[in-house]
């Protein structure tokens, strides 16, 4: 696109002559359905908890999800008790897992992605400290993009601040 000066018409010649001239410039080894669902994340994981958490490990009553306080990644006693059960199951069942970290919507986008990663790392670190090989665990994060509850108060936000243990196809039973 270019801009050029207009040549003044005769009727305006006097006026234009007085003007200053001013030019212008002018799928990585997993298969199966998973936490991503219709949003298109082909996470390739078996998710039993519906939309990214709140379910159980395959064929068990062991919860697949732990929850966190606002802007925190510290594991509560309740969370470690769930993770201890998961660890027991993992010790009996080979195969890989992915820990998916999530955040609620009361934060900024990029930070919440990293906060999800930090929550997933907290779960992984705990599992590794209890003897699960690091090589079996991968971590991921979805930030605030995959809530399981969508209301606009703490009763929903608290459900969304979570880390979900997703078992790879072929693992376990």
């Amino acid at each position: 696109m270019r801009g050029t000066r207009i040549l003044g018409a005769a009727a305006l010649a006097l006026m234009l002559a007085a003007c200053a001239r001013q030019p212008i410039d002018t799928g990585q080894g997993y298969s199966g359905g998973g936490a991503g669902g219709a949003g298109g994340i082909d996470s390739g994981m078996i998710g039993t908890g519906g939309l990214g958490g709140g379910g159980v490990l395959p064929g068990t009553n062991i919860g697949d999800t732990v929850w966190f306080l606002l802007d925190q990644s510290t594991l509560s006693a309740q969370a470690t008790s769930v993770l201890d059960q998961q660890i027991g199951w993992l010790q009996a069942n080979p195969g890989r897992i992915e820990i998916e970290g999530h955040a609620d919507e009361r934060g900024t986008e990029q930070y919440n992605i990293q906060l999800g990663a930090r929550r997933a790392a907290a779960v992984r670190d705990y599992m590794v400290s209890r003897g699960i090989p690091d090589s079996r665990i991968s971590t991921n994060t979805f930030g605030r993009a995959r809530p399981i509850a969508t209301c606009a108060d703490e009763s929903c936000w608290s459900q969304n601040r979570r880390a979900v243990t997703v078992v790879a196809a072929g693992a376990g039973v």
Binding site: R5, G8, L12, R21
Partner: peptide
């Protein structure tokens, strides 16, 4: 009753 700066023209594709 005076122009503010010179007249200008811009050329470009009609679609733009």
């Amino acid at each position: 009753q005076a122009p503010l700066g010179e007249g200008l023209r811009f050329d470009g594709p009609a679609a733009s």
